[in-house]
Amino acid sequence: MLRLLGRKLLALIPVLFLVTFATTALPDLVDGSPVAQMLGPGSTPQDLKDLEHEFGYDKSLPVRYVTWVGNALTGDLGESLKTRTSVMDGIAERFPVTLELAVFALLMALIVAVPLGVWTAAKAGGRVDRVIGGVSSGLLSIPTFVSVFILVYFFANPKMMLAFKPTGWEYISVDFAKNIEFAFLPALALALAEIPQFQRLLRSDMLATLQEDFILTARSKGLSTPYVLFRHALRPSSFSLLTVSGLTLGRLIGGTVIVESYFAIPGLGQGMYQAINGKDIPVVQGTVVVIALIYVLLNTLVDIGYSLIDPRVRAR
Protein backbone atom coordinates (compact mmCIF):
# COMPACT_ATOMS: atom_id res chain seq x y z
CA MET A 1 0.00 0.00 0.00
CA LEU A 2 2.81 2.42 0.91
CA ARG A 3 4.70 1.59 -2.25
CA LEU A 4 1.57 2.20 -4.27
CA LEU A 5 1.20 5.58 -2.62
CA GLY A 6 4.85 6.41 -3.28
CA ARG A 7 4.52 5.50 -6.95
CA LYS A 8 1.43 7.67 -7.26
CA LEU A 9 3.17 10.65 -5.67
CA LEU A 10 6.09 10.27 -8.07
CA ALA A 11 3.67 10.24 -10.97
CA LEU A 12 2.22 13.46 -9.63
CA ILE A 13 5.43 15.42 -10.29
CA PRO A 14 5.33 15.55 -14.11
CA VAL A 15 1.59 16.28 -14.02
CA LEU A 16 2.05 19.21 -11.66
CA PHE A 17 5.00 20.50 -13.66
CA LEU A 18 3.04 20.58 -16.91
CA VAL A 19 -0.01 22.17 -15.34
CA THR A 20 1.82 24.87 -13.41
CA PHE A 21 4.23 25.70 -16.21
CA ALA A 22 1.40 26.09 -18.69
CA THR A 23 -0.50 28.45 -16.42
CA THR A 24 2.63 30.49 -15.73
CA ALA A 25 3.11 30.80 -19.46
CA LEU A 26 -0.47 32.05 -19.98
CA PRO A 27 0.39 35.81 -19.97
CA ASP A 28 2.88 35.18 -22.77
CA LEU A 29 0.18 33.49 -24.83
CA VAL A 30 -2.52 36.14 -24.58
CA ASP A 31 -2.52 39.72 -25.79
CA GLY A 32 -2.12 42.56 -23.36
CA SER A 33 -0.67 42.75 -19.92
CA PRO A 34 -2.52 40.84 -17.19
CA VAL A 35 -2.23 43.82 -14.87
CA ALA A 36 -3.63 46.37 -17.33
CA GLN A 37 -7.14 45.99 -15.93
CA MET A 38 -5.95 47.00 -12.46
CA LEU A 39 -5.18 50.51 -13.62
CA GLY A 40 -7.69 53.22 -13.11
CA PRO A 41 -8.54 55.90 -15.66
CA GLY A 42 -5.76 58.34 -16.50
CA SER A 43 -2.87 56.07 -15.66
CA THR A 44 0.42 56.36 -17.50
CA PRO A 45 2.56 53.71 -19.22
CA GLN A 46 4.93 54.12 -16.32
CA ASP A 47 2.16 53.04 -13.89
CA LEU A 48 1.72 49.88 -15.96
CA LYS A 49 5.46 49.22 -15.87
CA ASP A 50 5.47 49.67 -12.09
CA LEU A 51 2.61 47.26 -11.59
CA GLU A 52 4.17 44.68 -13.93
CA HIS A 53 7.35 45.00 -11.93
CA GLU A 54 5.45 44.60 -8.66
CA PHE A 55 3.81 41.34 -9.81
CA GLY A 56 6.94 40.17 -11.58
CA TYR A 57 5.50 40.14 -15.10
CA ASP A 58 8.53 42.04 -16.41
CA LYS A 59 10.71 38.98 -15.83
CA SER A 60 11.28 36.15 -18.30
CA LEU A 61 9.13 33.01 -18.15
CA PRO A 62 11.74 30.70 -16.53
CA VAL A 63 12.45 33.22 -13.78
CA ARG A 64 8.75 33.76 -13.15
CA TYR A 65 8.19 30.02 -13.00
CA VAL A 66 10.98 29.32 -10.53
CA THR A 67 9.82 32.18 -8.31
CA TRP A 68 6.23 30.92 -8.41
CA VAL A 69 7.25 27.34 -7.56
CA GLY A 70 9.44 28.57 -4.74
CA ASN A 71 6.59 30.57 -3.24
CA ALA A 72 4.05 27.80 -3.83
CA LEU A 73 6.20 25.36 -1.90
CA THR A 74 5.97 27.65 1.12
CA GLY A 75 2.18 27.80 0.72
CA ASP A 76 2.12 31.19 -0.95
CA LEU A 77 0.19 31.13 -4.21
CA GLY A 78 0.44 34.86 -4.75
CA GLU A 79 -2.11 37.66 -4.78
CA SER A 80 -5.27 38.02 -6.82
CA LEU A 81 -4.84 40.74 -9.41
CA LYS A 82 -8.42 41.84 -8.83
CA THR A 83 -8.89 41.83 -5.09
CA ARG A 84 -5.25 41.89 -4.06
CA THR A 85 -6.06 39.23 -1.47
CA SER A 86 -4.19 35.97 -0.96
CA VAL A 87 -5.04 33.34 -3.58
CA MET A 88 -4.52 30.63 -1.00
CA ASP A 89 -7.13 32.12 1.32
CA GLY A 90 -9.60 32.40 -1.53
CA ILE A 91 -9.18 28.77 -2.44
CA ALA A 92 -9.37 27.69 1.18
CA GLU A 93 -12.73 29.43 1.39
CA ARG A 94 -14.17 28.13 -1.87
CA PHE A 95 -12.81 24.58 -1.91
CA PRO A 96 -14.91 23.12 0.96
CA VAL A 97 -18.08 24.41 -0.70
CA THR A 98 -17.32 22.69 -3.99
CA LEU A 99 -16.08 19.55 -2.28
CA GLU A 100 -19.31 19.27 -0.32
CA LEU A 101 -21.38 19.80 -3.43
CA ALA A 102 -19.41 17.23 -5.42
CA VAL A 103 -19.47 14.57 -2.72
CA PHE A 104 -23.16 15.18 -2.05
CA ALA A 105 -23.94 14.86 -5.76
CA LEU A 106 -21.85 11.70 -6.14
CA LEU A 107 -23.52 10.04 -3.16
CA MET A 108 -26.96 10.96 -4.47
CA ALA A 109 -26.11 9.54 -7.88
CA LEU A 110 -24.76 6.29 -6.42
CA ILE A 111 -27.67 5.80 -4.04
CA VAL A 112 -30.08 5.99 -6.96
CA ALA A 113 -27.98 4.37 -9.67
CA VAL A 114 -26.67 1.29 -7.84
CA PRO A 115 -30.05 -0.28 -6.99
CA LEU A 116 -31.34 0.67 -10.45
CA GLY A 117 -28.30 -0.87 -12.13
CA VAL A 118 -28.62 -4.09 -10.16
CA TRP A 119 -32.35 -4.25 -10.71
CA THR A 120 -32.20 -3.66 -14.46
CA ALA A 121 -29.43 -6.25 -14.81
CA ALA A 122 -31.41 -8.83 -12.88
CA LYS A 123 -34.47 -8.16 -15.03
CA ALA A 124 -32.56 -7.54 -18.26
CA GLY A 125 -34.88 -7.39 -21.24
CA GLY A 126 -37.96 -7.17 -19.06
CA ARG A 127 -40.39 -4.29 -18.73
CA VAL A 128 -38.61 -2.69 -15.75
CA ASP A 129 -35.34 -2.75 -17.65
CA ARG A 130 -36.87 -1.16 -20.74
CA VAL A 131 -38.69 1.57 -18.84
CA ILE A 132 -35.66 2.52 -16.77
CA GLY A 133 -33.46 2.32 -19.86
CA GLY A 134 -35.78 4.73 -21.65
CA VAL A 135 -35.95 7.17 -18.77
CA SER A 136 -32.19 7.10 -18.40
CA SER A 137 -31.69 7.83 -22.12
CA GLY A 138 -34.01 10.78 -21.67
CA LEU A 139 -32.11 12.06 -18.64
CA LEU A 140 -28.82 11.63 -20.45
CA SER A 141 -29.98 13.95 -23.20
CA ILE A 142 -31.06 16.78 -20.89
CA PRO A 143 -28.14 19.18 -20.47
CA THR A 144 -27.50 20.57 -17.00
CA PHE A 145 -28.41 24.13 -17.97
CA VAL A 146 -31.89 22.87 -18.84
CA SER A 147 -32.35 20.54 -15.89
CA VAL A 148 -31.54 23.31 -13.39
CA PHE A 149 -34.54 25.29 -14.60
CA ILE A 150 -36.83 22.29 -14.32
CA LEU A 151 -35.55 21.47 -10.86
CA VAL A 152 -35.94 25.00 -9.61
CA TYR A 153 -39.45 25.18 -11.05
CA PHE A 154 -40.57 22.01 -9.25
CA PHE A 155 -38.55 22.02 -6.08
CA ALA A 156 -37.92 25.64 -5.26
CA ASN A 157 -41.38 26.91 -6.07
CA PRO A 158 -43.49 27.88 -3.07
CA LYS A 159 -46.60 26.72 -4.97
CA MET A 160 -45.15 23.25 -5.47
CA MET A 161 -44.69 20.46 -3.00
CA LEU A 162 -41.14 21.16 -1.93
CA ALA A 163 -39.49 24.47 -1.33
CA PHE A 164 -35.72 24.26 -1.37
CA LYS A 165 -33.64 27.38 -1.68
CA PRO A 166 -33.13 28.27 -5.32
CA THR A 167 -30.00 30.41 -4.91
CA GLY A 168 -27.40 31.28 -2.36
CA TRP A 169 -25.37 29.39 0.16
CA GLU A 170 -24.92 28.75 3.84
CA TYR A 171 -21.70 27.23 5.11
CA ILE A 172 -22.03 23.77 6.56
CA SER A 173 -20.05 24.84 9.60
CA VAL A 174 -22.57 27.60 10.34
CA ASP A 175 -25.93 25.89 9.97
CA PHE A 176 -26.20 22.30 8.81
CA ALA A 177 -29.94 22.23 8.08
CA LYS A 178 -29.78 25.46 6.13
CA ASN A 179 -26.75 24.20 4.30
CA ILE A 180 -28.67 21.15 3.08
CA GLU A 181 -31.55 23.35 1.99
CA PHE A 182 -29.17 25.28 -0.23
CA ALA A 183 -27.07 22.34 -1.34
CA PHE A 184 -29.83 19.88 -2.20
CA LEU A 185 -30.95 21.26 -5.55
CA PRO A 186 -27.51 21.97 -7.02
CA ALA A 187 -26.33 18.53 -5.90
CA LEU A 188 -29.42 16.94 -7.44
CA ALA A 189 -28.80 18.83 -10.69
CA LEU A 190 -25.26 17.47 -10.78
CA ALA A 191 -26.38 13.96 -9.81
CA LEU A 192 -29.08 13.79 -12.48
CA ALA A 193 -26.43 14.04 -15.16
CA GLU A 194 -24.47 11.14 -13.67
CA ILE A 195 -27.25 8.69 -12.74
CA PRO A 196 -27.92 7.41 -16.28
CA GLN A 197 -24.32 6.55 -17.04
CA PHE A 198 -23.75 5.02 -13.61
CA GLN A 199 -26.84 2.86 -14.00
CA ARG A 200 -25.87 1.72 -17.50
CA LEU A 201 -22.31 0.99 -16.53
CA LEU A 202 -23.31 -1.11 -13.55
CA ARG A 203 -26.04 -2.86 -15.51
CA SER A 204 -23.66 -4.04 -18.22
CA ASP A 205 -20.92 -5.13 -15.81
CA MET A 206 -23.51 -6.84 -13.67
CA LEU A 207 -24.90 -8.69 -16.68
CA ALA A 208 -21.43 -10.07 -17.35
CA THR A 209 -20.99 -11.10 -13.72
CA LEU A 210 -24.35 -12.84 -13.65
CA GLN A 211 -23.06 -15.16 -16.39
CA GLU A 212 -20.26 -16.32 -14.12
CA ASP A 213 -20.17 -19.82 -12.70
CA PHE A 214 -19.91 -18.61 -9.12
CA ILE A 215 -23.36 -17.04 -9.44
CA LEU A 216 -24.73 -20.48 -10.29
CA THR A 217 -22.92 -21.84 -7.25
CA ALA A 218 -24.47 -19.17 -5.07
CA ARG A 219 -27.93 -19.84 -6.48
CA SER A 220 -27.50 -23.58 -6.00
CA LYS A 221 -27.05 -22.91 -2.29
CA GLY A 222 -30.67 -21.82 -2.13
CA LEU A 223 -29.73 -18.20 -1.39
CA SER A 224 -32.37 -15.59 -2.19
CA THR A 225 -32.07 -13.57 -5.37
CA PRO A 226 -31.44 -10.21 -3.64
CA TYR A 227 -28.73 -11.86 -1.54
CA VAL A 228 -27.05 -13.31 -4.62
CA LEU A 229 -27.30 -9.98 -6.45
CA PHE A 230 -26.02 -7.72 -3.70
CA ARG A 231 -23.66 -9.98 -1.78
CA HIS A 232 -22.20 -12.07 -4.60
CA ALA A 233 -22.58 -10.13 -7.82
CA LEU A 234 -22.35 -6.44 -6.93
CA ARG A 235 -18.75 -6.26 -5.72
CA PRO A 236 -17.14 -8.02 -8.67
CA SER A 237 -19.25 -5.81 -10.96
CA SER A 238 -18.27 -2.46 -9.55
CA PHE A 239 -14.82 -1.90 -11.04
CA SER A 240 -15.90 0.41 -13.84
CA LEU A 241 -18.33 2.16 -11.56
CA LEU A 242 -15.55 2.87 -9.07
CA THR A 243 -13.27 4.20 -11.82
CA VAL A 244 -15.95 6.46 -13.22
CA SER A 245 -17.01 7.61 -9.75
CA GLY A 246 -13.45 8.75 -9.09
CA LEU A 247 -13.23 10.57 -12.40
CA THR A 248 -16.67 12.07 -11.86
CA LEU A 249 -15.78 13.39 -8.44
CA GLY A 250 -12.67 14.99 -9.89
CA ARG A 251 -14.66 16.48 -12.73
CA LEU A 252 -17.32 17.80 -10.36
CA ILE A 253 -14.73 19.48 -8.18
CA GLY A 254 -13.04 21.03 -11.18
CA GLY A 255 -16.02 21.94 -13.25
CA THR A 256 -19.29 22.66 -11.55
CA VAL A 257 -19.27 26.07 -13.22
CA ILE A 258 -22.78 25.97 -14.66
CA VAL A 259 -24.47 24.75 -11.51
CA GLU A 260 -22.46 26.98 -9.20
CA SER A 261 -23.17 30.02 -11.35
CA TYR A 262 -26.87 29.25 -11.69
CA PHE A 263 -27.40 28.67 -7.98
CA ALA A 264 -24.97 31.46 -7.01
CA ILE A 265 -22.80 29.17 -4.94
CA PRO A 266 -19.43 30.56 -3.84
CA GLY A 267 -17.45 27.51 -4.91
CA LEU A 268 -14.26 26.78 -6.80
CA GLY A 269 -15.96 26.56 -10.19
CA GLN A 270 -17.55 29.97 -9.86
CA GLY A 271 -14.24 31.44 -8.61
CA MET A 272 -12.38 29.91 -11.52
CA TYR A 273 -14.92 31.23 -14.00
CA GLN A 274 -14.61 34.75 -12.65
CA ALA A 275 -10.81 34.52 -12.60
CA ILE A 276 -10.65 33.43 -16.22
CA ASN A 277 -13.01 36.17 -17.28
CA GLY A 278 -10.96 38.73 -15.38
CA LYS A 279 -7.58 37.40 -16.61
CA ASP A 280 -6.73 36.93 -12.93
CA ILE A 281 -3.69 34.77 -13.66
CA PRO A 282 -2.56 33.97 -10.08
CA VAL A 283 -6.05 32.76 -9.12
CA VAL A 284 -6.28 30.56 -12.23
CA GLN A 285 -2.83 29.19 -11.49
CA GLY A 286 -3.59 28.38 -7.88
CA THR A 287 -6.97 26.83 -8.59
CA VAL A 288 -5.62 24.66 -11.39
CA VAL A 289 -2.87 23.31 -9.15
CA VAL A 290 -5.35 22.43 -6.45
CA ILE A 291 -7.63 20.67 -8.93
CA ALA A 292 -4.73 18.73 -10.42
CA LEU A 293 -3.71 17.62 -6.94
CA ILE A 294 -7.26 16.48 -6.21
CA TYR A 295 -7.38 14.49 -9.45
CA VAL A 296 -4.23 12.58 -8.66
CA LEU A 297 -5.34 12.02 -5.10
CA LEU A 298 -8.67 10.65 -6.27
CA ASN A 299 -6.94 8.37 -8.76
CA THR A 300 -4.88 6.97 -5.95
CA LEU A 301 -7.99 6.44 -3.85
CA VAL A 302 -9.61 4.61 -6.76
CA ASP A 303 -6.57 2.33 -7.05
CA ILE A 304 -6.79 1.58 -3.34
CA GLY A 305 -10.49 0.97 -3.87
CA TYR A 306 -9.75 -1.70 -6.49
CA SER A 307 -7.77 -3.70 -4.00
CA LEU A 308 -10.58 -3.38 -1.48
CA ILE A 309 -13.08 -4.73 -4.01
CA ASP A 310 -10.94 -7.53 -5.36
CA PRO A 311 -8.33 -9.39 -3.30
CA ARG A 312 -6.61 -10.53 -6.49
CA VAL A 313 -5.48 -6.94 -7.11
CA ARG A 314 -3.78 -6.92 -3.71
CA ALA A 315 -1.67 -9.90 -4.65
CA ARG A 316 -0.14 -8.12 -7.62
Partner: peptide
Protein backbone atom coordinates in the same frame (compact mmCIF):
# COMPACT_ATOMS: atom_id res chain seq x y z
CA UNK B 1 -19.64 -27.74 -10.25
CA UNK B 2 -17.31 -28.43 -13.09
CA UNK B 3 -14.64 -25.78 -12.94
CA UNK B 4 -13.30 -24.91 -9.49
CA UNK B 5 -11.39 -21.98 -10.99
CA UNK B 6 -14.63 -20.17 -11.77
CA UNK B 7 -17.22 -21.65 -9.44
CA UNK B 8 -15.98 -19.87 -6.33
CA UNK B 9 -16.64 -16.17 -5.86
CA UNK B 10 -13.21 -14.51 -6.29
CA UNK B 11 -13.94 -11.60 -3.96
CA UNK B 12 -15.21 -13.50 -0.92
Amino acid sequence: FQDPMTSLNPVL
